[in-house]
Amino acid sequence: MKVRPLAASAVALLAGLLTVSLTSVPAYAIEDGGVSAAAATASPGSVLEQAPAPGALAALGIAPADATATRVLYASTGVRGEATPVSGLVIVPKTPWRGPGERPLVAVSPGTQGLDDRCAASRLIESGRLNDGTWIKQFHTAGYAIAMTDYEGLGTPGDHPYADNVVLGHNALDVVRAARQLGVSVTAPVFLQGFSEGGGATAGALELAPSYAPELPIAGGHATAPTGDLTAIGVRRGPDVYRPLLLLAVGVLDDDAPASGCPPVGLPRGLTDPEAFGPTATATPEPPPTSRSRIEVPFAVTAAWADEIVPLRSVKEAAKQWCARGSRIVYSTSWAPSHLASGYEGGGQAVRFFGDVLRGKSFESTCDWLF
């Protein structure tokens, strides 16, 4: 897998969005071969292949008697508008739902954790090192079904369109369609949640849903530190261990270099010496596709004062743009001490927010004071 570059100069800006995974990843249970041809004639959300994922349940501390976990390959809409296979994970509780109405589904869009296909979230979760696993467990405890996308090009052939919120939004919506073929009711309310790159994917999905997936009964969304304007992401000054992986991502290193993998596993000798690559230059990346169109459901957006990766000001600016289109934004600023810490705090906020939506709580938009 090679990340589809935004621009060669974007290397420095992408560095902080990669979270280190320290363990190897178990073999994948679904074969990728031949699925591209099958996806070409399949409608978005169609399940192409599926396999049990007991390792995911074990890593999350969920008993097999309490839920089923299924890895899926499903069809989605790719970066050029073509049909493409995308992998993901669906977890459906077996225990009775005790909330109002039908058991809801949460579509989790994960944050970035590596460049190699082995770093795809549905694979990485079995190592116990998937950051998003913490809030996935919270959603399961609350009784929700969960559908998580790996995104185009992560776990499947082809390039990963990093932070392209249109493509990632398609992927997030289509994993919901796939989950509805795996035991989730087609009339159950759907929520969308994501952190960092996943926050951008969630926003993209909410914007696209009325036209791309109008049949989905989406009830609300929650995004923590959503990526949208990469030009606002703080430039990392000075050398760091991420640089060789980022050089691989934008094509400076050959695809066959053994630097591929979940960092720092698989770094070739010499590439762990960041001085070999010189100082990080100030970058001006191309902005990712985003429309900032109206979002039709309650959408909670949170950012941290101390976020060193996705600045508070960039998240507030995105929220203002959604407000200007008539969206109902519930914005909050957290005291989390870092980017990653904001994700853990945001996962708990999402569980509470979705519960309030299900109970019919009325939300006051924060758009007035954002302006």
Rank of each mutant, 00 (worst) to 15 (best):
P337M: 05
T149V: 07
A223K: 06
V176S: 05
P104I: 08
E31A: 15
E82N: 09
P285N: 06
Y344T: 14
G133F: 05
I30Q: 04
G81R: 01
R123Y: 13
Q321I: 02
G221E: 13
V265H: 04
R294Y: 06
E296G: 10
S122G: 09
R71H: 15
G158P: 10
F195Q: 10
G343C: 12
C323T: 11
A163F: 11
S196Y: 05
F299C: 07
M1Y: 13
A69N: 11
L6W: 03
S9H: 03
G101M: 04
L6G: 04
P54Q: 13
A223S: 15
G251I: 05
G343Q: 08
F299R: 07
E296W: 06
A350W: 10
A304T: 07
E317V: 07
T282N: 06
T70A: 07
P210A: 02
A213W: 02
S334D: 08
K94A: 14
A205H: 01
V20S: 05
T23Q: 10
D240A: 10
A83P: 00
R292I: 00
T187R: 15
G261W: 04
C323P: 06
T366W: 03
S314I: 02
G204W: 00
G153R: 04
W97D: 05
T19P: 00
A67E: 09
P258G: 14
T134K: 08
G81N: 03
T68Y: 03
Y28G: 13
A209W: 01
R243C: 00
P104L: 09
H170G: 00
P26A: 09
V92P: 01
G155V: 10
A147S: 09
L358W: 06
V167A: 11
A145P: 03
P96T: 10
I309R: 10
R177Q: 03
G88Y: 01
A341I: 08
S87E: 05
V106Y: 04
D164C: 01
G200S: 00
G346Y: 07
A147K: 04
A188H: 04
A341W: 08
G101D: 06
L60S: 11
V72N: 06
G45M: 07
D150Q: 03
L173M: 10
G128C: 11
R71K: 15
P26H: 06
H160V: 09
Y144H: 06
G88H: 01
S293P: 02
